[in-house]
Computed example of a mutant assay.
Amino acid sequence: MAELVLAPDDSPSDVRRHVESCSECAVTLAALSDVRRLVGEESLVPAPAGVRDRVMAQARTRPPPADDVVRPLASTVPAASRRGPRIPVWAAGLAAAVALVAGLGIGRVTVPEPAAPEPEDPGSVVAAADLTALDSDADRGVARAVSVDDMVTLRVSARELGDEDGFHEVWLINVDGTRMVALGVLADWDTGEFQVPRGLIEEGYRIVDISVEPEDGDPTHSGVSLARGELA
């Protein structure tokens, strides 16, 4: 099935005919095709050793909800299969992940091994803050002020900030509670690095705040903070 997604022109004709007539295989193919589509045009490389085992282990620890189902996508499943039985989301997702991991090892896709990245200078941590939700003590990540080559970089790694509409912005609030400066927007996966003048932290701007901001063009703080912690 993975081969049918990764190298359709090289797949045996009897496999293609079977998928066209088998509703369960058509659903699995739809899930596989979605995984490949999400990868985009990036070159595929063999999965690291142990990935398949970890996928299987994680899947086995999650019992499938009885009503968690997925239907074939109209754009990728033959019309004859759309009336077939519904397949659980966990089964289709597991099939997609494991089959693609296996498919990447069949030799159909060959690309050079990527060069190892240059190691980054970890710098020296001069201050750190545990980020928590404002309405509880729930962990929301960590922020570290790192000194590298006489510069201070605030490295923020947040989690579970919710899915409210808008974007997540990082602020430094002065300990006097009346002044603040915006540092920038968190990137995907709610992580980011921000250059901070050393004097700013020394002047008391030590409270790291993450807000959710509507896309309304207003540069001021929305007043809705998702996480906060003080550098110490």
Rank of each mutant, 00 (worst) to 15 (best):
S157V: 03
I210R: 05
A232F: 12
Q195L: 15
R52G: 05
A74Q: 06
V39R: 13
D34N: 11
A143K: 02
V146I: 15
R17N: 14
V170A: 04
A31R: 11
V19I: 15
A47R: 09
E41F: 13
A127C: 11
C22Y: 07
V35F: 15
G223C: 07
P112L: 04
V15P: 02
A115Y: 00
N174H: 15
P65M: 05
V98M: 00
E118S: 08
D130A: 10
G40M: 07
L134P: 04
P78N: 09
P48L: 09
A95L: 00
G177N: 11
L226D: 04
V51P: 02
L172F: 09
D68S: 13
D216L: 14
W171Y: 13
V27Q: 12
D67Y: 01
G107E: 00
A26N: 08
G141L: 06
Q195F: 08
V152F: 03
L226H: 06
D68V: 02
L73D: 13
P78F: 03
E202W: 01
G84Q: 05
N174L: 05
V175A: 15
A143W: 05
L29W: 06
V148Y: 02
P63Q: 06
D176N: 15
H18F: 12
R54E: 11
G223I: 13
V35N: 10
D14Q: 11
A99I: 01
P112Y: 00
A96L: 03
E215Q: 11
V69K: 07
E169P: 00
D130V: 15
L154T: 10
A95M: 01
D34C: 10
E113H: 04
R198A: 15
D176A: 11
T28R: 14
M56Y: 00
L94A: 10
A182K: 12
V142A: 12
E24R: 11
A59E: 07
A96E: 03
G105W: 01
E24T: 14
A7S: 14
P64F: 04
T61G: 00
R82Q: 12
V109D: 01
H18R: 15
L154G: 02
G105A: 02
D10N: 09
L154E: 05
I106H: 01
E20T: 11
A129P: 05
V175S: 13
G204C: 10
G50F: 05
L226A: 07
L131V: 13
D67M: 05
G204K: 11
S75K: 09
A80W: 02
T178F: 00
V89A: 06
L38W: 08
E41T: 15
V35M: 12
I201P: 02
R228I: 15
S211A: 15
I207A: 08
A57G: 06
M1E: 11
R71N: 04
A2W: 05
S11V: 15
R206W: 05
A138T: 14
P219Y: 11
S157P: 01
V98R: 00
V185K: 14
R198M: 10
I207Y: 05
L29E: 07
P114D: 00
E113N: 00
A145M: 07
E41M: 07
S33N: 12
C25F: 12
P65C: 01
M56A: 10
P114F: 01
G199I: 14
